[in-house]
Simulated scan of single mutants.
Amino acid sequence: MAMTWDGLEQIQPAALKMMKNSIQKSRVAHAYLFEGMRGTGKKDAAKLLSKALFCENPIDGFKPCEACLNCKRINSGNHPDVHWVEPDGLSIKKQQIKELQEEFSKKGMESSRKMYVIDDAEKMSTGASNSLLKFLEEPGAQTVALLLTENPQQMLPTILSRCQIITFRPLSPEFFIKQLVENGIGPDSAPLLAQLTNNVHEALELNAQDWFAQAQKIVVKLYEMLKKNPLEAMVALQGEWFQHFKEKEQIDRGLDLLLLVLKDLLYIQLGKQEQIVFKKESGRLEQFALQTRTRSLPDQMAAVLEAKRRLHANMNPQLLMEQLVLKLQEGSSFV
């Protein structure tokens, strides 16, 4: 079912207000950049803006009616004057932008207005970016461009400067937890998943994975080993961690989980047990919290964040994890 204007307005009021003002004041820009993390409603907003501009019977002058032929065709991806461009493989190619330009050189099929949406716009190749830049510099009178991105910093500054930027904020954990529970995720699992993603589909996938369930146990066990001695922790690394966290993305996920364990320990020590996310491990974490000095936890969190940075800078994962374990033990200050 398509997201409604009122539904998205609940989670992205500022973004929807900017869109509404543009439509009501007849100041629709030639190009918009919707930026924000995955799952914050950028695609839904792109469809809503498309429908608002093509709707035959807009409600209050700006909300799509969802019932006319144009609204229905945009929902099904079949409107002849609304074009979506997505990565072909790992990137958006120059040829895709060239074909878009050729399409837009023709007159609109049913009206003078035309619209194109470029999803994952940061994945445009250099050639595609330069072609799009020329396209943005000479917009048609009734042409609207929508660029969607999670990483605007990876795009050409000259493209960004030609767009009106609308930021989509991360969903509040409380709202997202409620969404997850409504989608069948247990109340013990939802808080943890809400810290790892803003996307319901991704959360459902993670929740169903045996790999993810095992990953949580391994991360908690590694922290337990850290309290014993360096050898125990290194054995845990070699025996379980490296066997389970093999790909770069998996290691990154493991470090995120380790960071959440440390946050939970801090919450317990501050008497905020209701905020912990490892609900299923609360008993063990309370024991760990009793054995850990509060002042050591911020240093340990900083060490994990530094490990994440080094991982993305392509440091050898095995060396990285061994150094992290030693660092965590140096600054652990266990009672």
Rank of each mutant, 00 (worst) to 15 (best):
residue 97 I to P: 01
residue 100 L to N: 06
residue 121 A to Y: 03
residue 68 C to I: 01
residue 70 N to A: 10
residue 119 D to M: 12
residue 94 K to F: 05
residue 149 T to W: 13
residue 100 L to H: 03
residue 98 K to I: 15
residue 160 L to V: 13
residue 56 E to Q: 14
residue 124 M to P: 06
residue 81 D to F: 05
residue 90 L to D: 15
residue 50 S to P: 03
residue 110 E to A: 07
residue 111 S to E: 09
residue 71 C to T: 03
residue 75 N to I: 13
residue 71 C to R: 05
residue 76 S to E: 14
residue 120 D to P: 04
residue 102 E to G: 09
residue 119 D to F: 12
residue 162 R to E: 07
residue 145 A to S: 15
residue 80 P to H: 02
residue 165 I to N: 12
residue 149 T to L: 12
residue 143 T to P: 11
residue 123 K to I: 11
residue 139 P to T: 10
residue 119 D to Y: 14
residue 140 G to Y: 01
residue 79 H to F: 05
residue 94 K to P: 00
residue 124 M to G: 05
residue 147 L to K: 08
residue 146 L to S: 05
residue 65 C to H: 03
residue 93 K to W: 06
residue 149 T to D: 08
residue 155 M to Q: 10
residue 134 K to D: 08
residue 142 Q to P: 03
residue 83 H to L: 12
residue 153 Q to C: 00
residue 49 L to D: 02
residue 136 L to M: 11
residue 48 L to D: 03
residue 132 L to R: 02
residue 89 G to Q: 10
residue 126 T to N: 12
residue 62 F to L: 10
residue 50 S to L: 11
residue 98 K to Y: 10
residue 159 I to Q: 02
residue 73 R to H: 06
residue 137 E to T: 08
residue 49 L to N: 06
residue 98 K to W: 00
residue 74 I to G: 05
residue 67 A to V: 13
residue 68 C to M: 02
residue 105 S to Y: 08
residue 121 A to W: 06
residue 106 K to R: 15
residue 165 I to T: 15
residue 84 W to G: 07
residue 151 N to W: 12
residue 111 S to Y: 06
residue 167 T to H: 14
residue 107 K to G: 04
residue 150 E to Q: 14
residue 87 P to D: 13
